[in-house]
Amino acid sequence: MSLFRDLHVPGTPLLMPNPWDAGSARILENLGFKALASTSAGAAFAQAKQDGDLTLDEMIDAAREVAAAVSVPVSADLENGGGDRPEDAATAIRRAAAAGLAGASTEDLGSDGIYPFDLTLERVEAAIDAARSTGIVLTARSEGLLTGTLSLSEVCERITAFARAGADVVFAPGLKTTEDVQAVMDAAGTTPVSVLVGANAPEMTVEHLASLGVARISVGSGLARVAYGGIVAMMRTALVEGRFDYPDTTASFDEIARLLK
């Protein structure tokens, strides 16, 4: 866990992709990535479920499957920890640590939408206490930009509160511009900031995010959507036009075998 913590260096961002199963995890490790994170959406898709429909047990099992396939640190996407109460957030973090995961996240989105500020902070504080008792790296995240229910200033208020409470990393998915990232960086102070690059965004290069002081970059459900998108496009063409168009990025058996070793 200390190795994972040390990989978060502002200005030298950790590239932490999000595999959705053991095979994709092994491939990413052998490509050279130093840490990985599970994706609750990708894990849900693999079980023919919608994002947000996994139980806490299923999210931890998905993260454990990724961790068992690799030797690098793995952080778990635990959504809201399976419940709305602060003790639910704390229990989820303790369970992630017991499962051998190096990190875990807790977020402010519940089944009925974004939590009120006071409840959000209580949940994060409970998760931080659990993280300190276990040594796991705690990422506190606000989903308000993704859901479109909080303004950037409201999200930044939460990021500041998370940082002051002692979160190891803060995270606000949905940042789209340099100005968005800079606002979160300012709100976080000296706490490491993670940025999600979930779609084509010319500004969001590793070099540029490094220049802003970002400490970690992930892709969330992006890799799973790329894989499933290839399936949809190829087989829709086969159904409609009777043609089998393999993407230029299709891997050979030899390449897959090499990267799975």
Rank of each mutant, 00 (worst) to 15 (best):
P192Y: 07
A163R: 04
R141E: 03
A126L: 01
E179R: 13
T191N: 03
Q182I: 09
E179P: 06
V181Q: 07
E107D: 11
A161R: 06
A187Q: 07
M185L: 12
F171A: 02
F171Y: 13
S111E: 12
R141N: 05
T106S: 10
D168I: 03
S142A: 00
L138C: 11
S133E: 13
S111C: 08
G110R: 13
D168G: 06
A161V: 00
F171K: 09
R132Y: 13
A126D: 00
A165G: 07
T134Y: 11
V169D: 05
D168Y: 03
S111H: 14
A183R: 10
G103E: 00
T149N: 14
V124L: 13
I114E: 02
A140W: 09
R164K: 15
E179Y: 12
E125V: 12
Q182A: 15
A126Y: 01
I136E: 01
R123P: 01
A187R: 01
M185D: 00
D118E: 15
G174K: 13
D108Q: 09
D118N: 14
S151N: 06
L146H: 04
T149F: 14
T147W: 02
T139I: 11
T160I: 04
E143Y: 14
G174M: 02
G144D: 09
E107W: 13
A163M: 00
S153A: 14
G135C: 02
A140P: 05
V170E: 05
G148W: 11
P192T: 10
G144N: 08
L109E: 00
F117V: 01
A131F: 00
A163T: 02
L175R: 02
G174Y: 14
L119Y: 11
R164A: 14
I136W: 00
G110T: 06
T191D: 11
V124T: 10
V169E: 02
D186A: 15
D108M: 06
M185V: 07
T120Y: 09
S153K: 12
R158V: 05
A161I: 05
V124E: 02
E179F: 14
V137W: 00
D186S: 12
M185A: 08
V169P: 08
K176N: 10
I159G: 08
G174C: 10
L145M: 11
L152V: 10
A187V: 10
D168V: 00
F171W: 00
G113L: 10
A187S: 04
E154H: 11
A187K: 10
R141Y: 07
E143Q: 13
F162N: 07
S151C: 12
R132I: 05
L175G: 07
